[in-house]
C-alpha cells in the first residue's frame, strides 16, 4: 500500500466507522429518546434534591452541565470502551482484523461518530434542563469555554480508545467493568457537585479522568461568581493539563491497541464468545 492510498484507506475507514453513529444512530428514534430521557431523569432527581435543601440556582446549573457531560462519559464507556468486546460477541471483530486497514482508523471513526452522536444528545439535555429549571448560565469567555470543551472531548475519547483495547482482552466482565465505572466516576469527577468538595487529594487523583477538569473549568466559565470559592484549579491551568492528557491518551491508545491485540491473538481471545 503506498503512502497516498494508505491515507485514503485510513480516512475512508474513519468515515465508514463514523457513519453508523452519525447517520444510523439517529434512525432509531427510541434510542435517541432514551439517551436524552435517561440522563434527564437523573438530572431532574438531583435538581429536586438541591431545591429541597434550598441550594443557590447555580447549583442546578452544575447538575444540568454534569448531566450533559455524563452523556459523553456513558458514550465513552458503552460505545467506545466496550465496543470491541461487543464486536467480538457479534462476530464482527474478525472482519475488522482481516480488513486491510488500520485499527486506529476504526477507533478514530468510532470516537468521531460517538462525539457527534452524543453532542446532539448533550445539547438537548442542556437546552431542556436550562429551560425547565431556569438555570442562570452566562458564558464569560466563549473561546476558552469552547477550547476547554473540545480539549475535554479529545482527551476523553482518547481515554475511550485506550480502554477499548483493554476491553479486547476482557470476557463477560467487560459489561460489569463498564457498570463499575459509572457511579464511582460520577462521584469522584464531581458530576453533580464541585469536585473540590472531595478534598484536594481526591480531586487531584480524579484529575486523571479528563472529565473532572473539563467540568470544573466549564463551571468556572459558566458560573464565575459561584465557582470563585469552589474551583479546584484555574480554568487556564486545567485547560493546559487537559491538552497534555489528550496527547498522552492518544499516544497510549495507539500503543495499547498494538499490545493488547498481540496479547489477545496469542491467547486466542479474539474470537472467543460468551466467555
Amino acid at each position: 500500500m503506498n503512502g497516498r492510498s494508505g491515507w485514503t484507506t485510513f480516512w475512508r475507514t474513519v468515515c465508514g466507522r463514523a457513519y453508523p453513529r452519525v447517520i444510523g444512530a439517529q434512525r432509531e428514534k427510541s434510542w435517541v429518546f432514551f439517551e436524552i430521557f435517561l440522563p434527564l431523569l437523573q438530572v431532574t432527581a438531583y435538581v429536586f434534591i438541591y431545591r429541597a435543601i434550598q441550594a443557590p440556582p447555580e447549583f442546578l446549573g452544575f447538575v444540568v452541565l454534569g448531566g450533559a457531560m455524563s452523556a459523553y462519559w456513558l458514550n465513552v464507556l458503552w460505545s467506545m470502551a466496550s465496543q470491541l468486546y461487543w464486536e467480538k460477541e457479534t462476530g464482527n471483530l474478525e472482519l475488522y482484523i482481516v480488513a486491510p486497514t488500520s485499527r486506529m482508523a476504526i477507533l478514530l471513526g468510532m470516537a468521531l461518530g460517538g462525539m457527534f452522536q452524543t453532542t446532539l444528545r448533550a445539547a438537548a439535555i442542556i437546552t431542556i434542563g436550562s429551560l425547565l429549571f431556569r438555570v442562570p448560565m452566562t458564558a464569560t469567555n466563549v473561546p476558552v469555554l469552547l477550547g476547554v470543551f473540545l480539549t475535554t472531548l479529545v482527551a476523553l475519547y482518547g481515554l475511550g480508545m485506550m480502554l477499548s483495547s483493554l476491553f479486547l482482552f476482557l470476557g463477560r466482565e467487560a459489561s460489569h467493568f463498564s457498570e463499575l465505572l459509572q457511579e464511582p466516576v460520577s462521584l469522584v469527577s464531581g458530576f453533580y457537585f464541585p469536585v473540590r468538595a472531595l478534598g484536594q487529594v481526591v480531586a487531584a487523583a480524579a484529575s486523571a479522568l479528563p472529565i473532572t477538569l473539563g467540568l470544573d473549568a466549564m463551571r468556572q466559565l459558566l458560573f464565575p461568581s459561584m465557582m470563585e470559592n469552589l474551583r479546584f484549579l484555574s480554568a487556564e491551568v486545567e485547560l493546559a493539563i487537559l491538552a497534555g492528557s489528550a496527547a498522552v491518551f492518544l499516544f497510549l491508545a495507539h500503543r495499547a491497541l498494538a499490545f493488547f491485540e498481540k496479547l489477545a491473538r496469542r491467547e486466542g481471545r479474539l474470537t472467543v464468545r460468551g466467555q
Partner: peptide
C-alpha cells in the same frame, strides 16, 4: 451512588 448524595448535602 449513596456518597454522591452525601457530598451534595455536605456542600450545600
Amino acid at each position: 451512588g449513596a456518597l454522591i448524595l452525601v457530598f451534595m448535602y455536605a456542600v450545600i
